[in-house]
Every structure is written in C-alpha cells, then in structure tokens.
C-alpha cells in the first residue's frame, strides 16, 4: 500500500503558498504533495491556517504567492512575482477534478436529497437525468440514505446531511476529495456515521485531503499526517511517526492536549 502510493501519480503539488488577509498573515510558505489514493490528514490548533490552506486548493481563497498544481496542471503559479490563475476551460477542468465537503454541509435546502445530487451533473456536465439518476441512487445507497432521497435536508440529522453532502460531491466524480472539518459541526454521537463513510471512501482508494480534529480517524485512516501551527507546517509524517514519536515540542504539546 505505502509503495503503490509513493510511486503513484502526483495529484496535488503545493509549493510555498502564502496567504494574507487584510489583518493577518495566515499561511507562510506551505509545501506538500499528495499522490493518487493517498489520504492526507491535516491537524492543528484552531487558527493554525489549516482550513484556509485547504480552501486555497480549490480557489475558495486565492493565494498571494506560490503555486498549486493539480494532476500536473497549474491552478495557480507565480509569474514575475505575481500569482496567475488558470482560466476558462482549463480552470473549470482543474476545479472539476476536486470535490469538497464543508463543515456546515451547505446542502441546497430547497431541493430534496436526490435533487441535491442531480443538480450539478445535470447543470454543469449537462448529463441527462436518466444517465445520472442510477449513479446518484447508488451513491445514496452507499452512504445509507437511499430511503431519504425525497426528503428535504432540513428533515435530516446533521450526520445524515453530511453524508448527503459527501454523496453530492461524489456525484461529480472527482479525483480528489477535500474535507474541511466535516464532523466539527456535529453532535458527538453523529460523527461516527460520517467518519465511517469517509473510511469507506478511503478504502476505495479515493485521494483525500482532510482537515479534522478527529485524532483517532487521522491515526487509523491517514497515510500521512501534517501538523500545522501559526500558518506553517510544523511536522509531517506517517501517523505512526507523528502520533507515536513526534519530534517537535509544538506537536507534542498539541497532541497532549488533544488525547
């Protein structure tokens, strides 16, 4: 498993990205790579910049410096000291290869569960309803919510909504899935079902980048863990290395607090 990943296709290559907001520096030169089938988990204290970093990968935030490459194509690169983003079809193609799951689910409340899944494939990919319907239904079965397909999101629990959100992202058939604290808005008893769905996805060798506070999940599912603090990568390694024998004081202090 380790070997197949380390030789696998480079899915994400992030080099030296910097991000400033009006009032604060958030990212100070982050670099990492993700290979096909890899599950990269990013942990760190609140305000460490990990969510911002994730949002830079699909341009929900724009970087000020550095480059982001997705499967060999540049989403953003530096040209003569300024950041240039891909445009037009190229940009759409790059962004289309990534799906995202949000902390607040962000399902479309005026659409049923099934309609949430059909919307983007039909509108964006111009697929016919009968083409995408079996795919969507299969995804709902996979996340265990087929019987809720005609319900509106407000009728579902948070955990169910998040599983629908995962299925909705998967309906676009992405190559990489980004998870931004997918269980942080959930009651503790509901996190399990979402983590189970993510675990199943990882077992199918989906390439995943996960920002989370769930240490047990990181330990069990991640191929590699990055610990971030104050906009920097403090330490990275396999879960065994990072949780078993952290090198940096900062990492040790954080893990002691969390566990």
């Amino acid at each position: 498993m380790e070997n197949t990943i380390s030789n696998g296709e480079l899915m994400l290559e992030v080099k030296n990205i910097h991000k400033k907001f009006a009032d604060a520096d958030v990212l100070h030169g982050i670099s990492f790579t993700v290979r096909r089938g890899e599950v990269l988990v990013i942990i760190g204290p609140s305000g460490s910049g990990k969510s911002t970093m994730l949002r830079c990968l699909n341009r929900l935030e724009e970087i000020d410096k550095g480059s982001v490459q997705v499967r060999g194509e540049y989403l953003a690169k530096e040209v003569d000291g300024s950041t240039v983003y891909a445009e037009g079809d190229e940009l759409r193609h790059i962004l289309g290869s990534m799906g995202m799951v949000f902390q607040q689910f962000n399902l479309f409340p005026h659409m049923t569960v099934l309609e949430n899944l059909l919307e983007a494939p039909m509108q964006v990919k111009k697929m016919k309803r009968e083409e995408i319907l079996p795919v969507a239904e299969e995804l709902l079965r996979k996340v265990g919510l087929y019987d809720k397909k005609d319900s509106y999101p407000a009728r579902l629990s948070g955990g169910q909504q998040q599983r629908v959100a995962i299925a909705r992202a998967l309906a676009m058939n992405p190559a990489i899935m980004l998870f931004d604290e997918p269980t942080s808005a959930l009651d503790p008893e509901l996190t399990g079902e979402v983590l189970k769905t993510m675990r199943e996805l990882a077992a199918e060798h989906m390439t995943m980048v996960v920002v989370t506070h769930e240490m047990a999940f990181a330990r069990e599912v991640a191929n590699r863990v990055i610990f971030m603090a104050d906009g920097n990568i403090v330490e990275q390694g396999t879960p065994e290395e990072l949780f078993g024998a952290p090198k940096e004081e900062r990492t040790k202090a954080f893990l002691n607090n969390m566990l």
Partner: peptide, 13 residues
C-alpha cells in the same frame, strides 16, 4: 449564506 455560493462553486456551477 456564503456556504451556498461556495457549495455551488465547488460543484462547478
């Protein structure tokens, strides 16, 4: 909510 725009954007709309 801003999340609605973000969800639509990440779905390619």
């Amino acid at each position: 909510e801003r999340g609605q725009y973000e969800a639509a954007k990440t779905l390619g709309m």
